[in-house]
Structures are given as C-alpha cells and as structure tokens.
Design a protein around this nucleic acid. Structure first.
Length: 266
DNA sequence: TCTGCATGAAAAA
DNA sequence: TTTTCCTGCAGAG
C-alpha cells in the first residue's frame, strides 16, 4: 500500500542493501532498458524518500539519480541472491552479490540529474516523515485555500506522503467534516492534523501497516490488531461508526473515494 | 478461474 | 473530468 510510510520503508531497506555497493542492473520487461544499462556496474550512494518518491544516488559522483514513484500499482520485491528468473513485467532489477530487488508496475522509473531531483522535491509540500519538514508550510498553504480539506490532504504540493487511507483517518480522528475548506478549518486544527499525521505515519513506518484506531474503539481491543479493526472510516461505508454507530458514508471527490462519519465529523 | 476494486498521479481531452 | 499505467488482492462461483 504505497502511501508515504511504505516509500520510507523502501528507502531505509534499499539503503541498507545497496548503499556503497556495486549493482548489476537490467530491465527484463524492456521499458527501462536504457536506464538499466546506465546503472549497471555503478555504485549506489544514498537512498532517500520524499513523500511518495524514492531517489537513489548512482555512480561515485552521484550526479545522476534513479527516481521511482510506485503510483497505484507499483511494487518492489527483494530476496537473497541468486535472483530468480524474471516473471512478468519486471521493469528494473538491481542485484548485488547478496541481494536482488525487482520493480514492477511503477508510474515513474527514470534516471534524472540532481537539479531535476531538486525540482521534484521543490514541487512537494512538507513530508511528515522527514526531520527537515516545515509544518508551517502546510498550515499556511492549506489555511489559505478554499479547496476542501479532504482534497488538500491528498494534494502532494500541500502535504507530501499522505494518501487516501491516511487522509480519511486523519479527518475522522480530528472530527473534521471533509468538505470544509482549508481556510475554514483554520490554523489551529491544521497544526493538529500535521501533528497527528506525524504520529500515525511514524507508526506506519515502524510497523509497515496503517493502523489508526485506539484500542478502546476496536471490536477486539486485546492482542494483535485485526485487519478489520485497523481503521475508523476507510472502506467502512455502510458499516456503523465505531463511536456513534451512524452509518459511514462514501462519496467520490476529485476521482477518489472519500469516507467519513456524518455525526463524528462536523 | 474470473471479476471488480484499490493505496497515485500525469497526460489527454 | 477521463484515461492510462497494468499489479495484487478479495470475493464470487
């Protein structure tokens, strides 16, 4: 589930596997053949996530970078060497003596320059998972907008790394009606959304899954969190709200499904 | 085995 | 606003 926490986990793991090592690269599917040839035989430098983007420094001078964005379908797989024969549409395969990594279905897999990397980052809002994030940039931008807060939370120029699951859950936890404008929500509540995003996404980074419910609100408060207990509203339309038992609603907003409780959020 | 739906975002219209 | 990328999963049969 590629929201920001997934990509930060990828960056952390791939950094551990690749940084300082020479890699062999190929593109069994063929769509990234030229890029793979340029990576092949080079040393990988730092691996970094920003929002839903991952950047890999390539070569000793690190003047070019591999840029990956998984989009909706993209996924990574990895395992200990030797790499298995590629099956299906493997866009890019990176191998060290110890490990292999496969990339499939990504929206973006490209070699870029450092200025191009900086331009991508410059388009993004602050990322709650980065230490260098500036929360005020989010509060200022969202607080000046007439767009619905639900749209702003998914807008990567406003906030980087939040996707459809986190946005629905953040708004429920804050008790905010999703169609209210950013301007109407106001600076205080926006700052609260940021703080909660940091908390939830750090937990996601740690555990690899999105769990937003407090134990008291779960059907099974003890033991491991069951998948059906992990969320308040996301994909729970038609089910009763965990707190007020009102039916959770769903509406399509800007092409994406939005879920909320009409009573708990106002 | 088949069908529909899903975490995202850029390009096209 | 619609289409595209074309994977993985859940549920139906």
């Amino acid at each position: 589930m590629p929201e920001g926490h997934t990509l930060h986990r990828v960056a952390r793991q791939h950094g551990a596997l690749l940084t300082g090592r020479r890699v062999r690269a190929d593109s069994p599917q063929g769509r990234f053949a030229a890029g793979a040839r340029r990576i092949d035989g080079n040393t990988v430098g730092l691996v970094e996530a920003y929002g839903k983007h991952v950047f890999y420094e390539i070569g000793a001078a690190a003047t070019s970078l591999l840029h990956v964005h998984l989009g909706l379908y993209g996924s990574f797989r990895d395992g200990p060497a030797p790499a298995p024969p590629p099956r299906g549409a493997v866009r890019l395969r990176l191998c060290t003596d110890e490990h292999w990594i496969e990339l499939r279905g990504a929206t973006a897999a490209e070699l870029i320059t450092r200025p191009e990397r900086d331009a991508i980052v410059a388009r993004l809002g602050p990322d709650p998972l980065r230490r260098d994030a500036n929360p005020q940039a989010f509060v200022t931008r969202a607080g000046a907008s007439r767009a619905p807060i639900a749209t702003l939370l998914m807008d990567q120029r406003t906030l980087a790394g939040v996707g459809n699951v986190y946005r629905a859950e953040l708004l429920y936890r804050a008790g905010i009606e999703p169609h209210r404008s950013g301007r109407d929500v106001g600076a205080g509540a926006l700052a609260g959304l940021w703080t909660d995003a940091v908390r939830l996404m750090r937990a996601g980074l740690r555990t690899g899954r999105i769990v937003t419910t407090d134990p008291a609100d779960r059907d099974h408060p003890r033991g491991p969190v069951r998948p059906e207990d992990a969320h308040y509203v996301y994909r729970r339309h038609g089910l009763p709200c965990r707190r007020c038992r009102t039916e959770i609603r769903k509406v399509e907003l800007a092409g994406r499904n939005l879920f909320w409780c009409p009573i708990c959020q106002h």
